[in-house]
Measured scan of single mutants.
Amino acid sequence: MTTFKLIINGKTLKGEITIEAVDAAEKEKIFKQYANDNGIDGEWTYDDATKTFTVTE
């Protein structure tokens, strides 16, 4: 398992979430669903070196 981080830079929601997953593709799906469930629609980036997804509205 690898630890992945999501950084949220939303208009109404900001924060960080850290979760373990098998791979980045699995985690991306979970993070995007979390963002969608919380009304966050923005630009996504991924840094493989730090295993960090960022979504910015």
Rank of each mutant, 00 (worst) to 15 (best):
D23S: 09
I40W: 12
K32F: 10
V55G: 01
A24C: 15
G10T: 15
N36T: 11
E43G: 04
F4S: 02
D47Y: 04
G15N: 07
N9A: 07
K11G: 08
G10I: 14
E28I: 14
W44D: 00
I30N: 02
D47H: 03
I8L: 08
T56K: 06
K5Q: 05
A24E: 11
I40P: 01
V55I: 10
K27V: 15
T45H: 08
A25L: 10
N9M: 11
A35I: 13
A24T: 12
F4Q: 02
I7Y: 06
T56P: 02
K11V: 13
D41N: 12
L6I: 15
N38L: 15
L13G: 09
T54K: 03
E26A: 07
F53P: 01
T56R: 05
I30K: 05
T50W: 02
E26G: 12
F4L: 05
A25E: 09
L13Y: 14
T3Y: 12
N38S: 07
T3V: 10
T12Y: 13
D41E: 12
M1R: 11
E16Y: 13
V55D: 02
Y34W: 15
A21Y: 09
D23P: 07
I30S: 02
A35K: 03
N38A: 10
T45S: 12
L6Y: 10
E43P: 04
I19P: 01
Y46E: 00
D41P: 04
F31T: 01
V55K: 04
K51S: 05
T56L: 07
D48C: 06
A49Q: 09
D41V: 13
K14W: 14
I19V: 07
T52E: 01
T56I: 09
A24Q: 12
D48Y: 07
A21R: 05
N36Q: 13
E26Y: 09
L13S: 06
F31K: 00
E43C: 13
A35N: 02
K11S: 10
E26D: 14
I40G: 01
T18R: 09
D41C: 14
I40V: 06
G10P: 01
T52C: 07
G15V: 15
G39I: 04
E28S: 06
W44G: 00
N36P: 01
D47T: 02
K27I: 15
A35V: 07
G39H: 06
A35G: 03
E26C: 12
E28Y: 14
K5W: 14
W44F: 05
T2C: 15
T2W: 15
E20M: 13
L6R: 00
I40Y: 06
D37Q: 08
L13I: 13
A35D: 00
I30G: 02
T3S: 10
A25K: 07
K14Q: 11
F4E: 02
Y46G: 00
K27P: 15
I40A: 02
A35Y: 05
I8V: 08
I7Q: 02
F31G: 00
E43M: 10
N38M: 14
F31D: 00
L6C: 14
V22I: 09
K11H: 11
I8E: 00
I7F: 06
V55H: 03
G39R: 05
I17F: 13
G39P: 03
L6E: 02
I7L: 03
T2P: 05
D47M: 02
F53T: 09
T50Y: 03
I19M: 06
I19F: 15
D41S: 12
T52P: 00
I40D: 02
K5C: 13
D47K: 00
K29M: 11
I17L: 08
T50V: 02
F53A: 03
I40E: 02
E20Y: 15
T54Q: 03
E16R: 09
T12Q: 07
D23F: 08
D23N: 09
T52W: 02
N36K: 14
E43Y: 12
F31Q: 01
E16C: 15
K14C: 15
A49K: 08
Y46C: 06
E28D: 08
I19Q: 02
I30R: 02
A25H: 08
T2K: 05
E57G: 08
Y34T: 01
F53S: 04
N9C: 15
A24M: 11
I19E: 02
F53L: 05
T12I: 11
E28P: 04
L13F: 15
T52S: 03
I19H: 02
E43F: 11
T18Q: 08
Y34K: 00
G10A: 05
K14L: 13
K29N: 10
K32T: 08
T54F: 10
T18W: 14
Y34E: 01
Q33R: 09
I7W: 04
D47V: 03
T2A: 08
W44S: 00
G42A: 06
E57P: 11
V22A: 11
E20N: 10
T50M: 03
G42D: 02
A21N: 11
M1G: 07
Y34S: 01
D48H: 06
